[in-house]
Design a protein around this nucleic acid. Structure first.
Lengths: 112, 112
DNA sequence: CTGAATCCCATGCGATACTG
DNA sequence: CAGTATCGCATGGGATTCAG
């Protein structure tokens, strides 16, 4: 499927959106936008996430250059994650999305 | 699962994000943000979409108050779709997402 | 022209158990 | 502490067919 021809104007939109789709990617980026975190710190914030999902999500984000990974010591293991410059570009998206989420809530209340 | 406790600060973010997840919702909102469209006009823009997916997506968006539906004539059928006021609130999100998509493309080029 | 009904499959997600 | 391996299920997406 050649998506280039399909969405023309909305192509960038779709690509970027697909990129951050996935249940845990956005929450991860969100928390990392507030500061670097260790593996288990991140996991505590993301209540309900399992090791396998946190690992996968972080690997995906790292592969796509959104997140960096720094291993500070091996024994005991000590790994820190943070946003790359590229990853920081997403912060405005998070903010607008959050703002929009609030307007959604207001709309729902009004329609009760 | 009580998501309220989980994401605290990112809760609105997640809810709003889940809401527009789905392969075709964003493209639909995108095209409708440029003007009202008939069923088949929309379908022509969304190359590759099937009737069932277009119908489902439009119904979802209508149920959630993002899109209105107006049946102008019955024979032959003539139906027009457009964004509600609530739906228009998402336009800033689309714009920021699109802008971010462009920076993503630039990053990828730089890393070739 | 504008859909709906049915069935099927790929993928994402996750429970569980295990490791250096 | 910071992961990995395996297996299985639920969900969303879609092909096909039919209809007012």
């Amino acid at each position: 499927m050649n998506t280039d021809e399909w969405y023309d104007g909305s192509c960038d939109l779709i690509n970027s959106f697909n990129f951050i789709s996935g249940k845990w990617r956005l929450p991860i980026l969100w928390y990392l936008s507030h500061g670097n975190l260790r593996y288990n710190e991140l996991r505590r914030h993301l209540c309900g996430i399992t090791n396998i999902m946190l690992t996968r999500s972080l690997q995906d984000l790292e592969i796509h250059g959104m997140v960096w990974r720094k291993q500070l010591s091996n024994i005991p293991p000590h790994v820190v994650y943070g946003l790359t410059d590229q990853g920081k570009n997403i912060i405005p998206v998070l903010e607008v999305l959050e703002a929009w989420g609030e307007t959604q809530v207001n709309f729902e209340k009004r329609n009760d």
